[in-house]
């Protein structure tokens, strides 16, 4: 079957209209999870079916698409989704954050600051921040309705009682415009400050759970915390071993069986950009040659 057998961006027009209506309502009620009739996609749940449906509903032929998985452009999930839209929508693709108009992401916000006109689409596994505290949808819905978020603070408090600090490191809950508590998807809490006051449109799609939510640009997003235990965006206490960046989020890579390790930027585009600009880290080939 030829690729022309598909509608532009794979989904049929009626499905796109349904998703588009949900997206507009999601923007009108920032942080509120809008139910939508999630479709089966030609990839398994957990591979970003929600993000893919949101991206498909947003794409135009003029777009330049970037897809990242944990910050990397070259991992299986990112490559397969990028190729999916190359085939079904014929859009241009890029690995450069600055050149992209639509960025679909799994679990990271790019290090390069986003700009007005860009759209960041998050893949979300569990959109309900209260789900692991209260499994019943009827109850969590009522809790959002009544702004009854005490349970979430109890959870954070129990973190402090047990570990001496808020140990939640990813999917760190946030409050949007003082109203809805929202799951920012499993991004590291290092990325939480970038959610707030961001010039880009941020859209969240959860395929298996059939939920869409959104943050318009310049929305106030606050990470939940306590006066005596304020929120801290944490990262590994190293510089990138390839590009030397001290301010980027790092992945820890085990390099042998003797416990050697290196830290590298999780955002591959950011790291290669810095290396191309001449920055070097502890383990980059050039610095070895010099040594």
């Amino acid at each position: 079957m030829s690729d022309d057998a598909y509608n532009f961006a794979y989904l049929d027009e009626q499905t796109k209209r349904m998703i588009r209506r949900a997206l507009l309502k999601a923007l009108a009620i920032p942080g509120y999870q809008v139910p939508f009739a999630s479709r089966e996609m030609p990839m398994p749940y957990g591979w970003g079916t929600g993000g893919v449906q949101v991206t498909a509903a947003c794409l135009t032929p003029d777009d330049v698409l970037k897809v990242i998985d944990q910050g990397a452009d070259d991992t299986t999930n990112a490559v397969s989704i990028r190729r999916f839209f190359q085939r079904t929508a014929g859009v241009a693709t890029t690995e450069s954050t600055a050149e992209a108009t639509v960025i679909q992401t799994r679990h990271r916000i790019p290090e390069t600051p986003l700009t007005e006109g860009q759209i960041l689409v998050y893949q979300v596994p569990i959109p309900e921040p209260l789900r692991f505290l209260e499994p019943r949808e009827t109850e969590t819905r009522k809790m959002h309705e009544l702004e009854e978020y005490g349970l979430m603070h109890v959870k954070l408090y129990e973190d402090i009682a047990r570990h001496g600090e808020i140990a939640t490191a990813y999917a760190y809950p946030v409050k949007v415009e003082g109203r809805y508590v929202m799951d920012p998807s499993p991004i590291p809490k290092f990325d939480n400050p970038k959610l707030s006051d961001n010039p880009a449109i941020q859209l969240f799609g959860a395929g298996r759970e059939s939920r869409i939510y959104a943050l318009p640009p310049y929305t106030q997003v606050v990470s939940l915390d306590f006066e005596d235990h304020p929120f801290r965006a944490s990262k590994a206490d190293h510089a990138c071993d390839l590009c030397g960046a001290a301010e980027s989020y790092l992945d820890e890579v085990i390099t042998d069986d003797a416990g050697s390790r290196m830290f590298v930027c999780s955002d591959t585009d950011f790291c290669t950009g810095r290396q191309a600009a001449g920055h070097r880290g502890r383990l980059s080939p050039l610095s070895k040659e010099i040594a």
């Binding site: 509608n7 532009f8 027009e13 923007l27 135009t60 032929p61 449109i201």
Partner: peptide
């Protein structure tokens, strides 16, 4: 061209509602 024109139209609606 419904697929392409509605995509452009939606992006205008999305930009309007977002800003």
């Amino acid at each position: 061209e419904p697929a392409v024109q509605s995509a452009h139209a939606f992006r205008a609606l999305l930009a309007a509602m977002a800003r």
